[in-house]
Amino acid sequence: MFERFSRPAREVVIGAQEEARSLGHDWIGTEHLLLSALRLPEQPGVSTLVRLGVSAETCRAAVSSVVGGADGDALGPEDAEALKAFGIDLEEIRRRAENAFGDGALDTPVSDPGESAPRRRRLGRLRRRESGARGDGGSGGTGELPGPSRHIPFTGRAKKTLELSLREAVARKDRHIGVEHVVLALLRGDDKISQGMFQRLGVAPKEMRDLVLADLRTAA
């Protein structure tokens, strides 16, 4: 599917990994695709968002709020699992987590905060079993978190967005997948991260989709 993407759309997909790394996240989600798209404010679809007040800065603040930036409140035991989904100010979170839960509290891989809690628990159990089989504590024997050069996987919701972008292109009878199709697919996102992000941006996804489509018709 990737070869069908236009050059700017490929830049969005590649840039999403850079956005995830810049935020210290261990996953690539819809939030990172949107942040990457906003690097190209003149592109169709993105230009509509920008015209209506959405910027990389406001989007980054919304992502930090939805995903879970650390605040100054004390952390209790009920926060242990949520902490593993945090990727912002990781060193401070690690310090607090280890103070509350002991050394190595964050040494398991970070999971996508958009996943359901049961799925996170299943993945956590699987990772602990794999760590026990390797005898390395889950960190390759180093006791360190994965380095910034490690490949960051796409979440299921991000993959769904890329698949939906193909459907958007087909529905419009376009011969390639452009940034506009990625934006339209993002606005169809029904996961809690996407919904929370757009809510904080003051964006009603359905209405915004209609405006993007209207701008595309005008430009055609």
Rank of each mutant, 00 (worst) to 15 (best):
I193D: 06
D73I: 09
V182D: 04
R129P: 09
E130S: 14
I193T: 13
E168S: 04
F5H: 03
R60M: 10
G137D: 09
H151C: 01
G156S: 10
I152S: 06
R21G: 07
G141A: 08
P44L: 04
V182W: 00
D73N: 14
I14A: 15
R150Q: 12
P153A: 13
H32N: 13
A117P: 02
P118I: 03
R134L: 14
R200T: 06
D112C: 15
E81M: 05
G76S: 12
Q17T: 14
G102R: 03
R10Q: 15
L201T: 08
G178E: 05
A61N: 11
K192F: 01
L162S: 07
N99P: 02
P109F: 00
R4D: 08
G178F: 04
E163Y: 03
R167A: 07
I152Q: 06
L187A: 14
E163H: 06
H32A: 10
R21Y: 01
G102D: 06
K84Q: 12
A169K: 02
F101C: 08
A219L: 12
I14S: 14
M208I: 08
V182Y: 01
L126Q: 15
G72R: 12
A220L: 15
E163C: 04
S22N: 11
L184E: 10
A100S: 12
P148H: 01
A20I: 05
D73T: 14
I14Q: 13
A16E: 13
A185T: 09
A133N: 10
R60F: 03
A56Y: 03
I177D: 07
S116N: 00
R127W: 05
R121S: 13
E3L: 04
L216Y: 00
T30K: 01
P118Y: 00
L35F: 03
E163V: 10
V46M: 03
P77R: 06
D26Y: 02
S64E: 14
F154W: 06
T48D: 10
L40S: 09
S64G: 12
E42V: 06
S36A: 15
D26G: 15
R121H: 12
A220V: 11
T161P: 07
S65P: 05
R39C: 09
R94G: 03
K206H: 12
E19S: 06
E115I: 02
L186H: 05
T58F: 00
R172L: 15
D191P: 04
E180D: 15
E92Y: 08
K159Q: 09
A171E: 13
G135A: 09
D136L: 06
E18Q: 15
R127T: 04
A37W: 00
G202T: 09
L23A: 14
L187N: 08
D71K: 07
G202Y: 03
G156C: 03
L35G: 14
E3A: 15
K206I: 07
R96N: 08
D26L: 05
Q17W: 00
L35Y: 05
E168M: 03
R175N: 13
L33P: 07
R21M: 01
S22H: 02
L34D: 07
R21D: 07
G196N: 10
S36I: 09
I14R: 15
S55F: 02
A56K: 10
D71L: 03
G53K: 00
D89A: 14
R120Y: 02
H151F: 04
A16S: 15
R4E: 08
G69S: 14
G141D: 10
G147A: 13
D103I: 11
K192I: 11
